[in-house]
Structure formats: C-alpha cells, structure tokens
Simulated assay, not measured.
Amino acid sequence: MSAGTEPIFTTNLSDLEVAAHDVLSAGARRHLRAWAGGAAAERANARALHAWRIVPRMFIDRSERDLTTTVLGVEMPAPVLLGPVGRQALAHPDGEVATARAASGLGLTYVHSERASRSLEEVAAAAPDGPRWFGLDWPDERDVDPVLLTRAQAAGCTHLLLSPPQPGQGWAALRDIRGTWDGPIVLGGLQHVSDARRAVRHGLDGIVVSNERGRRRPGVGGTIDALPRIADAVGGKLAVLFGAGARTGTDVFRSLALGADAVLVGRPYVHGLALAGEDGVRHMLRTLLAELEITLSIAGVGHHRDLDASALVHA
C-alpha cells in the first residue's frame, strides 16, 4: 500500500480459499480438502484456532522485529515451512516447480511430497538453492524404498518428514529408513502426549502436531488444543512443529505462542498457486509473513522466541 502497488489478489488470507474456488476444478478442491484431513477436520481446526484470542499490548516499542529462527539445524528467515501437498499440478500446470521457486526466493523451506506431480529432480533444477525436505508416507516394513530416499537426498533434501503410520503398523520401517536416510527424521500426525513421548523414545528428531489422519476417524477435534500439552511434555527433547489448519499470520502467531518451534502451511499456498502460479505462492507467503510481523508488534513482542501462552486468552 505504501509503495502504491496493487496486490495481485486479496491480502486477506481468510478469503483466499473463496478467491481460489472458481479457478480450482472440483477434483482439485476435493483433493485439497482430503489432504487437510477432510471437511470435519478443516472446520474443527478453524474453530479451535479462532478460540485462542490474541492479547494486544500498549506502550511497548517493537519497531524492530526479528522472525529468524533455527529448526533442526536449518537457519530460517521465519518459523514457517511449506508443508508437503501432493498433486499440485491440479492447481496449476507448474505445480511443485512454481511452489519451490517461490519458497526458495524467500528462503523458506519447501517440503516435497512423495505424491508430487513433478519429480524431485525437476524441483531441484528449478530451485537449486532452496532448502528442501522430503515428505514420505509411512511405509510398510516390506515396502521401504531405499532408491527413493537416495534420490531425495541426491536432489538436496536434507530432512525427512514421515506421515503417521496406518493403524496396526509398527516401528520396523523406521529402522530400515534410518539405514538409508542420512539426516534428521520428523514424524507427522501426532495428537496425543503418549505418542509424542514414544517418538522421543524411538529417537525421532522432531514431530508435527497435526490431524493428518483426521479423516480416518469420527468426532475429530481441533488439533491446536493438543499442542500445549505435547510441547510441555516433549519440548526441548525434539523439535515440535504444528501443521493443522494454519492459514494466516495470526494462526502462526497462535501456534508459536502455544509451543510450536515452527509452523507448516499447506492449502493456503496451493490456493495462491491456483490463482497466479509462482507469483501467487510468493504473494501468499509474503502476506502471511507480514501479518505475523504485524501481530507480533500488536502483541508487544520483538521476537517469536519470547512468545508464550500469556499472549493469548481462550474464549
């Protein structure tokens, strides 16, 4: 606004899904909703996030703000990662290539899905300098693919983000993965303190608090409410990330205040991709980071590391 430049689409990220609706096919919309855990999980996450209200502060000079952080050895300009979303070509022909380029331009970490439309090698060629992780579905112990993991590392992926196992699957696959993967391993889909403690015992380097498997069970709850308990139980023993429904900078603020070291966003950047390709992803991410910085200022916080639950009240 101050530069007199009109944004390419809305800067209200709460309206982004509505803006993208007309350019996304019905199949793409179904895919994105399923990826987020289904409609019930989506609604539950939004309600739970909005129930945590931000407390503004006055008479505190926060003219200088710092979003930088380090997560599992990765220096980041902000505590935000682009979570793994498969089949992004449903939103735009450039798919993951455009997303990786936009993330790389901002220095943000991009997580490449095993189910991506574009290959690991295409993404690496398009964004050679961007920090990259690899998102892998938890394999059956007989189906661990060492060639795929080797390809991911050759393409510059430094960390492995595992989706949660299906019911009945054991930990045997993790042993085989460790035999191939030379780097930190993060487990996603955790919603219970006991599961987080098991992750610590099994030597995981990080966890993602999310309801990634929310569509597989009835009565799903808002995952943000589980974050403080899990962070209190295992924070400091491994990295605690949040990845369930954060759409805006204020959602990222809430997640950080409740104990997350960083936040993964998913559907919002794909909506930006649908609207304007690489430029759309970049615009969405810049908007989110600006909103986070403004919210820190309103809350009287200079660095997100200083955040805690006292910055919020629960409605």
Results as ranks from 00 to 15, higher is better:
S104C: 07
A226D: 08
A315L: 13
R151L: 09
F242R: 02
W52S: 06
L227V: 00
A126N: 10
V85H: 11
E96F: 01
R217A: 14
H92W: 08
V208L: 14
S14A: 15
P218E: 05
A124Q: 13
L238G: 02
L190D: 00
A3I: 02
R43M: 09
E291C: 08
L307H: 12
A274Y: 07
G203H: 09
M58C: 09
R142M: 05
T295S: 11
D143I: 02
T69S: 10
G83W: 09
L108F: 10
V186I: 13
D306E: 15
H283E: 02
G73S: 07
S119T: 15
D22N: 15
V234A: 02
P268W: 06
P167I: 10
L289R: 14
A98N: 01
L273D: 04
F242S: 01
V186A: 03
A172S: 12
L296T: 05
P93S: 04
G135H: 12
V200D: 11
A315I: 12
G280Y: 04
S255K: 06
G214R: 04
A126C: 11
P131L: 10
F9A: 01
V265M: 13
R282P: 06
R286H: 09
I294P: 08
L148M: 14
A100N: 01
T287M: 06
E278D: 07
P164C: 05
A155Q: 13
S14K: 15
L187F: 07
P268S: 11
Q166C: 07
V193C: 05
G156L: 03
G168K: 04
R254I: 07
M1E: 10
D145C: 05
A103V: 00
R267I: 06
E114I: 11
R216N: 14
R57Y: 09
T250G: 04
E6K: 13
V281Q: 02
A51W: 02
V23F: 03
R132F: 03
G221A: 15
D61K: 11
G277E: 04
D137F: 13
T70L: 10
G86C: 04
G272Q: 09
I60V: 15
P93E: 06
R198L: 13
P165G: 07
Y269E: 02
D143A: 12
D225A: 12
L90I: 05
D261N: 13
E75G: 07
W133P: 01
F253E: 08
G277C: 01
E212Q: 15
A102N: 01
D94R: 14
D251R: 07
C157V: 02
A36R: 00
T158W: 11
H304S: 03
L90R: 10
R267P: 08
V97D: 05
S104K: 05
P139M: 08
A89E: 14
E212N: 13
V97P: 01
M58A: 13
G236F: 12
G168E: 04
R62M: 11
A36L: 01
L67P: 00
T287K: 06
K237L: 13
R132Y: 04
R254L: 08
V240T: 05
H271T: 06
D182F: 12
L288P: 00
